[in-house]
């Protein structure tokens, strides 16, 4: 059979109509490779059938294509990424764009909200920190006060321990000469020889002068130390230890004290 005879036999039409056998198909597929004219003929026949049937009905609604294209990724698993669909499916693109619009609007709203919220929070933070500063300030004031209280309490405690000790004798010193009407007290532990002087009752010493405490031991004055009025807390000033004191006296001496008391400046005196 020549190519022309084969064409005239109607076998190619049967092939397109799908009524050729498997053997005939194999024969034709072989011939298509060696005789391209046969394939051209097949395509021409196919085209005429396609054109004839395409003209036999009204144009298909474009909605059908949209439905089909939309159905592809829905129905088949492992479909390629969306980029190809967007070329053909305007609906999907439109809804995507709509979605982007919503997303942008939503994030903008979120941004504004958080911005305003931030400002409010910042204001709140500012007022909180100034409150905090005030609280801290008053706290330090209170701490200072507490420290003072504690200091005076411990001082009081110390004094009380000294005074309440049965071994300690309290000797009242009476004012004389320039300090007539004044009084002070010496606390002396006869066992340990410790001497304490309460400076809180003394007036300021004259300028450039200092009070000096003397103990009278066996009729002779013995230096018991300088009184320091600047010591505000420790009002019970610990003096030099004295053994066997018969009396105590205070004189006004030059700064740093004297080796021998000047009798004319004696201002306080009391017997044990």
């Amino acid at each position: 059979m020549t190519v022309n005879e084969l064409i005239a036999s109607g076998m190619l039409e049967s092939y397109i109509l799908g009524t050729t056998s498997r053997q005939e198909n194999e024969l034709l597929h072989g011939l298509f490779k060696t005789h391209p004219a046969l394939l051209t003929e097949v395509e021409a026949i196919e085209q005429s059938l396609i054109r004839a049937s395409a003209r036999s009905a009204k144009p298909v609604s474009p909605a059908v294509k949209q439905k089909i294209m939309a159905g592809l990724s829905f129905q088949s698993e492992g479909a390629p990424p969306d980029k190809t669909i967007s070329l053909h499916n305007d609906e999907a693109t439109a809804s995507k764009l709509k979605l982007y619009g919503f997303a942008i609007a939503a994030s903008l709203l979120l941004f504004i909200t958080s911005f305003v919220y931030n400002i409010l929070l910042q204001k709140q933070l500012d007022s909180l920190s100034s409150e905090m500063a005030q609280i801290n300030a008053s706290k330090s004031v209170m701490a200072d006060q507490l420290q003072i209280q504690q200091a005076s309490l411990s001082d009081l405690n110390n004094r009380f321990q000294i005074v309440s000790n049965p071994k300690v004798k309290t000797i009242a010193l009476n004012g004389m000469n320039s300090m007539a009407g004044h009084s002070a007290a010496v606390h002396w532990n006869a066992e340990t020889d410790e001497v304490y002087f309460d400076v809180s009752q003394l007036p300021q010493s004259p300028a450039g002068k200092q009070y000096q405490l003397w103990a009278i031991v066996a009729g002779k004055p013995v230096d018991a130390g300088m009184l320091d009025l600047a010591q505000t807390h420790a009002v019970f000033q610990k003096m030099k230890a004295v053994k066997g004191a018969q009396a105590f006296a205070v004189t006004i001496e030059k700064m740093g004290g004297s080796a021998v008391p000047s009798m004319e400046t004696m201002c306080l005196m009391g017997n044990v």
């Binding site: 059938l49 396609i50 054109r51 004839a52 049937s53 395409a54 003209r55 036999s56 009905a57 009204k58 144009p59 298909v60 059908v64 294509k65 089909i68 294209m69 592809l72 990724s73 088949s76 492992g78 479909a79 390629p80 190809t84 669909i85 070329l87 053909h88």
Partner: peptide
Amino acid sequence: RDQKAFAYLYDHYSQALFGVINAIVNDT
């Protein structure tokens, strides 16, 4: 699974197949 190629296939054959279907079903 190239959807672009499939869209091309649709563009080229849908109207002809629609003609065949419509000739049998006879309802658009």
